[in-house]
């Protein structure tokens, strides 16, 4: 069961602010959806079944050749200081 405290914790892990008055609705909806997902639990698969995964041969990777990117990739950054990007400080 997903309760209000669990939603609060998930919101913390995901760093998403949720208004207190919305917590209950989220809890109810998420609970219903997870109850549906629970059918996966009854699925009986042996350990031999490999989870779905994409594989590649060893040589299908990128060569180690540097190429500089010329465009201004910081053009979308709004909080800057010189060439640095400003970010919030880790709270002490």
């Amino acid at each position: 069961m997903v309760g209000i405290e669990e939603v609060r914790h998930l919101a913390y892990l995901a760093r998403i602010s949720i208004k207190d008055e919305e917590l209950r609705l989220y809890a109810e909806q998420m609970d219903e959806i997870l109850a549906y997902f629970n059918m996966l639990d009854e699925l009986n698969v042996s350990d031999d079944v490999e989870p779905y995964r994409m594989c590649r041969a060893y040589n299908e990777m990128r060569d180690d050749v540097p190429v500089a990117f010329s465009d201004n990739v910081l053009s979308n950054a709004k909080n800057t200081k010189g060439r640095f990007i400003k970010a919030p400080k880790m709270s002490s």
């Binding site: 180690d64 540097p66 990117f69 990739v73 910081l74 060439r83």
Partner: peptide
């Protein structure tokens, strides 16, 4: 190495101006 692990930016980042050794992938 000459380039980064997951993009083609130079692996040699030392002594460069901030945020000049970056590309859309590593950003």
């Amino acid at each position: 190495l000459r380039s980064k692990l997951f993009c083609r930016c130079s692996a040699d980042y030392r002594g460069k101006e901030p945020n000049t050794n970056v590309c859309p992938v590593c950003l």
